[in-house]
Amino acid sequence: MQLTLLKSKIHRATVTESDLEYEGSCAIDADLLEAAGLHPYERVEIYNLTNGERFATYAIRAEAGSGTLSMNGAAAHKAGVGHQVILCAYCGLSAEEAAEHEPRIVWVDQANRIRRTHGERPEDAA
């Protein structure tokens, strides 16, 4: 049996760009991709805290340190500049793997800079 568990989460990120004419996807600052353990072209679920929209697309790499979170193509209809969102990716695991699994969670500030990551105490964060 395979269980579907949370793999990665970027919590309360701010949409910085919206490009309806782009072919699709969500461009994410490379530093955030790495911290969350997300891969380019990996499916991400996006939960818009501003308007309640929930949708799926795939991640692409944006410049490291840029703070970019760009909704492209159809996703631009679901989340606009300034919207607060949660990005999640899930994985299929066996029951044995699930017993040991811990997701990679990244909390960001309003400029999409990493405040802390899963396992890090808030007072340890930069």
Score class of each variant (00 low, 15 high):
5 L>R: 14
9 K>Y: 01
10 I>N: 00
11 H>R: 03
11 H>Y: 15
11 H>T: 01
12 R>K: 09
12 R>H: 10
13 A>G: 11
16 T>I: 05
17 E>K: 06
17 E>Q: 11
20 L>E: 14
21 E>K: 01
22 Y>W: 07
22 Y>A: 13
22 Y>T: 00
24 G>H: 06
25 S>K: 04
30 A>F: 01
32 L>D: 07
33 L>E: 11
35 A>L: 05
36 A>Q: 04
37 G>K: 02
45 E>F: 10
45 E>Y: 07
46 I>L: 12
47 Y>D: 13
48 N>R: 04
49 L>F: 05
51 N>F: 08
53 E>N: 12
54 R>Q: 03
54 R>L: 05
55 F>W: 10
56 A>E: 15
57 T>D: 00
60 I>M: 07
62 A>R: 02
63 E>S: 05
64 A>S: 13
65 G>C: 09
66 S>R: 00
66 S>C: 11
69 L>M: 02
71 M>P: 01
72 N>Y: 01
72 N>R: 02
73 G>F: 06
73 G>N: 03
74 A>I: 13
74 A>N: 12
75 A>S: 10
75 A>L: 08
77 H>Q: 15
81 V>G: 01
82 G>P: 10
83 H>P: 02
87 L>S: 10
89 A>T: 07
89 A>M: 07
91 C>L: 14
93 L>D: 08
95 A>D: 08
98 A>E: 03
99 A>D: 10
101 H>F: 08
102 E>A: 15
102 E>L: 15
102 E>V: 09
106 V>D: 05
106 V>G: 09
107 W>F: 11
107 W>T: 13
109 D>F: 04
110 Q>T: 15
114 I>T: 05
115 R>Q: 09
116 R>D: 03
117 T>A: 00
118 H>F: 14
119 G>H: 07
119 G>T: 10
124 D>A: 14
125 A>Q: 06
